[in-house]
Amino acid sequence: MSRTALDAYIARKAEIDTMLARLKALSDDHFNVAPDEVDWGHVGTLAHYAEQLKRIIDAAFREGEYAE
């Protein structure tokens, strides 16, 4: 059976929705770090996550280096 572009698009969107839901749940749980356990390594990890997400946001909204 041939897959249409719409089928592929819907599958990719579902994949992204699943990833976003998992990330939201992890964030809601403070990225599995208790407040009294936070150290600079955790800060660095979140900075890395934020940097990667910013690249995605910039591409999706045509901001930053993707601005027209």
Rank of each mutant, 00 (worst) to 15 (best):
L20S: 06
K54P: 10
T45D: 12
L20K: 09
G44W: 08
R55I: 09
S2W: 03
D58T: 04
T4C: 07
W40D: 13
E37G: 01
Y66W: 13
A25D: 12
H42N: 14
A21Q: 10
A34H: 14
G64W: 14
M19D: 07
E63N: 08
A21R: 09
E63M: 13
Y9Q: 06
S27D: 10
E68N: 06
A60H: 13
I16L: 09
E63V: 05
A21V: 04
W40I: 14
H42D: 15
M19N: 07
L46F: 08
T18C: 02
Y49V: 15
R55Q: 14
A34M: 08
A67D: 07
E68H: 03
A47M: 11
H42S: 07
E63T: 08
L26D: 04
T18W: 01
L46V: 12
E51L: 10
P35I: 04
A14T: 02
A11C: 03
I10E: 05
D17Q: 11
T45C: 03
A67F: 02
T18M: 04
H48W: 11
R62P: 01
L6P: 02
V43R: 09
H42I: 02
T18Y: 06
R55T: 12
L53V: 06
I16K: 04
H42R: 14
D39Q: 11
N32E: 15
H30P: 02
G44R: 15
R12K: 11
D7N: 10
T45S: 07
Q52K: 15
G44Q: 12
D7P: 03
T45H: 08
A34K: 15
E15N: 11
I16R: 07
E37H: 14
R22F: 02
R22Y: 03
A34V: 01
A11M: 09
W40V: 13
A50L: 15
A47E: 13
K13C: 03
A60N: 08
S27Q: 14
E63Q: 12
E68S: 05
V38F: 08
A50K: 14
A50E: 10
L53C: 11
D29W: 04
R3T: 12
R55D: 15
A67S: 11
H30C: 10
E15M: 07
A5N: 10
I10T: 00
Y9S: 06
F31A: 05
A21G: 04
K13N: 05
